[in-house]
Every structure is written in structure tokens, then in C-alpha cells.
Design a protein around this nucleic acid. Structure first.
Lengths: 211, 211
DNA sequence: CCCTTAAATGACCCTGGAGTCAGTTATGGG
DNA sequence: CCCATAACTGACTCCAGGGTCATTTAAGGG
């Protein structure tokens, strides 16, 4: 047969990344159990057996995906709080719209869905994500709030709960986009949400200040 | 053999409910694909084959669970907004702590996890939940906000996004309890969250009002 | 008090999909 | 240039678990 192209290439270094990328897409879409290794292989442009050159089992592959995607996620958040902190009221909108930005060019929703959905079946992964991403992001916020409280900018109150007040709507926005929109829900603009929510956090929803 | 007790009883009316209850527990725990029909049967105190007396397939059973649990959920929310609405500032804390209450005696977290995790594999269920629960709850809030805006109590802004600002932290609290706490996270008190978040929504986080 | 009905079961079938392996062929180092 | 290595494949095994069915037996109606 005229072999214009070889049947396949040996690409020891590029392969794992491609497989991980494909696996992330499929796992985020279907969840662990419903994901088929053959789908992942196909999407990575490789045979199913090739997956086993780089990963021991399906479980291993899932772990690798969840872990490798955790690292850059947290790094994306750091610049938002680094540098000498200015006034809290000025940082909040930046942080919130920063989250909206991250969600734009990263399948945050799919990842969240995956981690949430499989948290019971893979407790270790839930742990890693809690420690490596959520807890760290939350503690950044907490730290910021505490500083601001010391400087007398922010009112008294549990900083951790303030953290939830801050992050909750953004996370809900991401989940909404992932879950509700494909099910026929009206899309929402994460940036608008970030902007308006920042306003709420600073001044509340009421027209007349009550204090 | 000495038959002190019959090997089983015929309980046409009680069975379906028991099966649904068991199925809810297992599905909420494991997700659809990872749930074993034999586990559900065991938990319901029945043989696997008996499930097929009442439900056609595993998928049918899942659908039945998701649908049947949707109805009471929404009904729990209605009283919170019914009755002539008072001042918005007084209703918010009631609504938020009402949500905390619902989460207490209903496995809201597990259900949310289940619906979120399987949203892609069962688009119809995601639709049902969006329409029957989320959208309705959200529209109650939206309606409340709009009324309050008309009365001049609440500032201008997209009522839908205000809804996310309201609900987001509570949902995140529920998910935190479901996902992060079993993974070693510090538990949070949903009622305290509700109370403090209500404060944020009304007066903002800042010490000095800025307007 | 049966006797008919159908609720419930245990033992089975069978497919989809995870995992294996002997063989094929790209490719870099000698 | 070519050979040893190992990346890669296709065709396989194997079993967990969804689904079926002949049979058993609880129990309500005549």
C-alpha cells in the first residue's frame, strides 16, 4: 500500500497532555462513571490501549486530571490579591470581575460539576480541591476581610461567612451557566453579575441606608 | 420448616415510596451511573427484581426520584413569600433563614449534587428542576425585588442578578456542607450565614456608607 | 375456607465497557 | 543505514451489573 503518511506517530512528550485535555473534557461533561475510555481515546486521537501506556487505570487518569487542573486554577487567583492591598471597596470589584474573567477562558463550570458530582466517590479528590483551590481562595478573601476590618473599613462579622457572601453568587453564576443554560435557562452575564454584586456588597440593596 | 414469619409481605402501596426513598439516598450519594440497583433494593428491604414490579428501568426510577422530590421542595418555599409582603428589609432575613431551615430537614445538598452532576446525562431532569424549582424560586425573589423597587425600597438594578446575590451564598453554603465538610472542611452554620448575609444585603459590608 | 391473583423472589442471561497482550512500526542512537 | 527500543494498535478476555423469567407464596374476594 502507498504509505503517504505513517499510520501513527510516536510522541512521548505531547501525548499525556493531549490525553489529559481530552479526559478533562469528557469527565467534565459526563462525570466519572458515565465517561467512556473509548470516547476519551477518540477525542485524544489515540487508541484506547494507548491510554494505558501513560495511565494505570481509569481511576488514575481521573485523579491525574483533577489534580493537574487544580494547580493552574489556584495560580490564576493569586494576582487578584497580591500586591499591597488598597482600599477594600476598590479591590472587591476587581476580585469579582477577575473571577468572571477566569470563568471565561477556563471550563470552570464543568470542572466544578465534576468535582462536586464525584465528591463522594472520590473523597481524596474532594480533599485535594478543597485544600488546593477552595480553601486557599477562601482564605485569601478571609485575610483581605480581616485586614480591612482591622483598618476599620469593613464591619464586624465572621470573615469566613463574608467570604461566602462574596463568592457564593459568582459560583452560582458559573453553575447556572453550566447546568441551567443548557437546560433552557436564560444565560446570564457573569461580568454584569460581578459588577452589580460588588455594589450590593459595598452599599447593600436598600435605597435608604438604615444605620 | 417452622415458618414463624412469612418470607415476605405484599405491600403494593407502601413499596413504591420506600423504594423511592432508598433510591434518593443512593442516587444522591453516588450519582446515577455509580449507583447499584442492588444497593437500592437492599436499602429498601426488597429484592432487585422487585424494583422492576414498580419501575421499568433504572433510568425511569431515577426520573421518578428526581421528579417526586421536586414538588415538595417548591412548596416549602411558597409560604416564605406569600401573604401581603411587608417591608423588603424585614422579609429578607426571614427568607434566608427559611432556606437554612429547609436545608436542615431535607437532603438538599445531596439532591443538588445529584441534579448538578447528572445534568448533561439527563437534560430533561435538569429542565424539570430548573422549571419546577430553581426558576420558580428565583422568580419569587425577582418578583419581591421588583415590588420593592417600585415602592422605592430597593435600588435600581437587574432583579435577576439581585436574586443571585441573595441565593448564591445560601446555595454555596449547602454545597459546602455536602461536599467540603466530608472532605475535611470546617462545618458552617447555615443559620449564622443566613443572618450575616442578610446584613450584607441590606447595609453592605462597609463601615462608612459611601453614598 | 379455598383459590385466584399478582407481589415478590432467586437464579439466570447478556451486553457494555474496563483492562490485557501479542504483534506492528515509528524513530533515535550507534 | 539499520537495529533495538518502546510507542502504539487491534483484537481479545472477562466480569460487573442491568435486566428477565419461571416459580413461589402472601392475601383479598367469593
Amino acid at each position: 500500500m502507498a504509505d503517504g503518511e505513517p499510520r501513527w506517530r510516536r510522541r512521548k512528550t505531547a501525548r499525556p497532555g493531549e490525553i489529559l485535555e481530552a479526559a478533562l473534557a469528557v469527565f467534565a461533561d459526563k462525570g466519572f462513571a458515565a465517561a467512556r475510555l473509548s470516547d476519551i481515546a477518540a477525542k485524544a486521537g489515540v487508541s484506547k490501549a494507548a491510554l494505558y501506556v501513560y495511565f494505570e487505570t481509569k481511576t488514575d487518569l481521573f485523579r491525574a486530571v483533577a489534580n493537574q487542573v487544580a494547580a493552574p486554577n489556584i495560580e490564576r487567583l493569586r494576582p487578584l490579591v497580591d500586591g499591597e492591598p488598597g482600599r477594600f471597596a476598590e479591590m472587591m470589584p476587581v476580585i469579582l470581575s477577575g473571577i468572571a474573567k477566569v470563568a471565561e477562558d477556563m471550563p470552570l463550570g464543568g470542572i466544578a460539576k465534576m468535582v462536586i458530582g464525584e465528591s463522594r466517590n472520590f473523597p481524596e479528590i474532594a480533599s485535594v480541591w478543597r485544600e488546593a483551590v477552595i480553601e486557599r481562595a477562601l482564605s485569601m478573601i478571609v485575610q483581605l476581610v480581616e485586614q480591612a476590618q482591622k483598618k476599620g473599613e469593613v464591619r464586624a462579622g465572621d470573615p469566613r461567612l463574608y467570604g461566602l457572601s462574596l463568592l457564593g453568587p459568582m459560583i452560582m453564576g458559573v453553575l447556572w451557566t453550566e447546568v441551567a443554560v443548557p437546560a433552557g435557562g436564560a444565560p446570564i452575564d457573569l461580568h454584569k453579575l460581578a459588577a452589580q454584586h460588588a455594589g450590593v456588597l459595598m452599599d447593600g440593596m436598600l435605597v435608604e441606608a438604615r444605620r
